[in-house]
Design a protein around this nucleic acid. Structure first.
Length: 281
DNA sequence: CTCCAGGGGTTCC
DNA sequence: GGAACCCATGGA
């Protein structure tokens, strides 16, 4: 795939928006749904080894190669100085469009959790219940597969209370109460409200699904942690010139904050800020 | 031992 | 409406 607009594979695949990519030198191996692939950059071209030609559209969509990122970044840079700083910090990071059900499940698993353990649980989930693929590895289990199980059946995940949430999510998706096509057709606020009816899905998980799977690049409310970074970067609010692309801005800001704020300080300052917000003004 | 990791549900007031 | 506390796991 040519002309990837300066995409940085490592930054994109290892920033915490996807959990099944594994670095192998400069290449990255990943499984998305039931497609196993090894990705690497040659200049500005994305090389996908092991991808069938018929899956080309799938990967273009997944990597959002149809989005003119250079133009978008240019808009960010000219629109706001601090946002320009974010872009300068990591110009190659991209917001993926991941399959709906696996995004929902991986972010349910992500709650009150850390990335290495999230990855480990997701791998156990796939190895235990996913379809074995030609050439090794396992696909992501279908909603139907999970829906037929009980929370106790997921004990092998060692995911704690999240097992119950996964089963509920699977049953709602398999039963059609949660429908990806319908969600995409809704205004973002309605889609978020529907996602939040799943047990174990709150504003944070819902927003991750909206951003990383459903491509809602609209006014994006930030969770407490994000707000901290946002307030540092945009003390007077997100500039109007950037409206409509806050989702992408959020990804930049997230990455910026991850590298610039000392890890121990994040929670503390977020809490302090939360307290300040709720008590004062 | 305690703390905490990219939350959310429940139970209080 | 929002604060406090609970939830399981595993690493630091």
């Amino acid at each position: 795939m040519e002309n990837c607009g300066g995409m940085d594979l490592a930054a994109t695949l290892d920033c915490g928006q996807a959990f099944r990519w594994q670095a192998n030198g400069a290449a990255w191996h990943g499984i998305v749904e039931n497609r196993s692939v090894t990705a690497r950059m040659e200049g500005d071209a994305l090389i996908l080894e092991g991808a069938s030609e018929t899956d080309r559209d799938f990967w273009v969509h997944y990597f959002a190669l149809d989005v003119d990122y250079p133009a978008l970044l240019e808009k960010f840079c000219s629109g706001n100085k601090r946002l320009a700083e974010c872009v300068r910090w990591n110009p190659g990071i991209r917001v993926l469009r991941q399959p709906f059900f696996e995004t929902l499940c991986t972010f349910i698993i992500s709650q009150n959790n850390n990335i290495p353990r999230i990855k480990a649980i997701v791998e156990r989930l796939c190895t235990g219940l996913g379809q074995p693929l030609e050439g090794g590895g396992y696909g992501f289990p279908s909603a139907e597969t999970l829906a037929a199980l009980e929370p106790e059946d997921l004990a092998f995940l060692r995911a704690g209370w999240r097992a119950e949430y996964l089963i509920d999510a699977a049953r709602r998706v398999a039963g059609g109460q949660i429908d990806e096509t319908a969600l995409r057709a809704m205004p973002m606020e309605n889609a978020r409200a529907v996602l939040c009816t799943i047990k174990g899905v709150g504003p944070k998980v819902a927003d991750c699904v909206l951003l990383y799977s459903l491509s809602f690049w609209k006014a994006f409310p930030m969770d407490v942690w994000m707000k901290k970074a946002m307030c540092q970067l945009f003390p007077r609010g997100v500039p109007v010139s950037c409206r409509g692309h806050e989702g992408i801005a959020q990804q930049f800001i997230f990455d910026y904050a991850r590298h610039h704020l000392p890890s121990g300080q994040k929670q503390k300052s977020a809490r302090k800020m939360h307290a300040k917000q709720s008590s004062g003004n």
